[in-house]
Design a protein around this nucleic acid. Structure first.
Lengths: 252, 252
DNA sequence: GATCATAGTCGTCTTCCTGACGATAAACAC
DNA sequence: GTGTTTATCGTCAGGAAGACGACTATGATC
């Protein structure tokens, strides 16, 4: 294994982002429209080169901030400071994944509350939130019946991996709260689970489960009626990060 | 986001391997001794450059084969063909992780049965299986009281992440069988869990759990007494990959 | 060959968690 | 007020897991 710094094969390293949020009862991902070849005009995941002096996590946080204005929220920091959860997802390095050159992409997963004003990069036409169901429909058609072009590069695979990570991770962690505003109700949290898993959950059992798990939810004392119906208690995310026993995803 | 192929920052991309096995009731990792600066003479995880025409998984499989003679066992292939389980772990890209140059390492995790003849690269003096407990003891001392030098680069972190991945993954998957020979007993499988988690499990409850989970174990009909005591039934790994409900790691 | 140590396997009992679902409470719309 | 919506509490049955007793089938030892 000779190790000559001058003869290593050069690669380009990028970060790509799977940014997920819950909007209108659906799990949505941030996509940007490509302005250049290849895949010009197609939707893709946001991303960009890692700079020479940047850590991978820094690069992902920078891209996230550039695309959404969100600040990444260090997983080690406990408080819900309106930042997004950001974690490394996986790395994609097929030699042919970019036709121009050898690019290795370190994909990251970000979970964000529904953004009041999605301000994507300044150009509203070049970015959008799209339901992952549409983005991943294979050669299919969106909710409005229009044909959907698949995402550029291997981004459909990356998105699918990110969605699956999110789906499984909210089972055994308190990460679903990352989709919620700082204060939220049990019903709002339940709708997050329902949107991410695309299932219906029993409100009574869900309520028992989340309020009975120590450290998951902390009542703030306030109530709200923003969902209509009887006023609901407001909660903040508690310190617990791991749910034990986990929240079980219903069988198919 | 201008994208000029000629001005991307160049990186070196490597794969590093966390190869785990269970030997003498302890979880052990493969380490190689570095022959060059930096960290000359220190132990490190095996690894090497990704070649220009290689996928990341291919590079990891090639390194694994070079270091151990094991063939990587595609996760999609079901049968236990004496190959090792291999999966991507995470990617490490701190700008200062290698003092010579910018190196991004895509770490992989391999789980292997105890190898009859650890033939590491041909040079027996340059590779060894070491208990992860010793390798991760911070500034500590090994089982024999000798001081332990920490692993080179950020390999202690990579190893810790790999161990944690293995520990959590055998909870909800049938991956523990990757540490076993093609045919094994319930007791042998239990000793794998005990070694990886470093806990003691109740043999009776464990037996009930694993034999009661559909698709986890398939009896081969044979029996063995290689552990002493009453002969035990032999099993092969079944088709199930996900355990539902999971095997619960005992509370601390 | 009897006894002992070792490991494997089958049961039992209690406790906890979950899924199904009834019932009540507190808001709003008409 | 009546109906609708959402929140919250309670009950009950079934399943899974931890604790642990009992029995079985080997090899080792006396």
């Amino acid at each position: 294994m000779p190790y000559d710094p001058s003869d290593y094969p050069p690669f380009a390293v990028t970060v790509d982002l799977v940014v997920l949020t819950v909007r209108r009862h659906a799990l949505c991902a941030l996509t940007v429209r490509r302005g250049e070849q290849p895949f010009q005009g197609r939707w893709a995941l946001p991303g960009g080169f890692v700079r020479p002096d940047e850590d991978l996590a820094q690069a992902a946080a920078r891209e996230l901030s550039e695309e959404t204005g969100l600040t990444a929220h260090d997983p080690s920091a406990p408080a819900q400071d309106n930042g997004a959860h950001l974690e490394q997802l996986a790395t994609y390095g097929d030699p042919k994944r970019d036709p121009r050159m050898r690019v290795v992409s370190v994909a990251h997963l970000a979970l964000a509350p529904d953004l009041p004003a999605p301000r994507p990069g300044g150009d509203a036409n070049s970015a959008r939130w799209a339901p992952v169901e549409e983005l991943l429909a294979e050669g299919g058609y969106g909710r409005d019946g229009e044909p959907v072009a698949p995402l550029a590069f291997d981004h459909a695979q990356i998105l699918a991996d990110g969605v699956e990570r999110a789906r499984s991770k909210i089972e055994y962690s308190s990460l679903a709260t990352a989709f919620c505003p700082p204060e939220f109700t049990v019903g709002e949290l339940r709708r997050v689970y329902e949107a991410v898993w695309a299932v219906a959950l029993d409100p009574r059992n869900f309520h028992r489960k989340v309020t009975g798990t120590p450290g998951f939810l902390v009542p703030t004392g306030g109530t709200t009626t923003r969902q209509g119906g009887r006023p609901a208690q407001l909660f903040r995310a508690g310190g617990a990060t791991l749910l034990n026993p986990p929240m079980l995803r219903p069988e198919v």
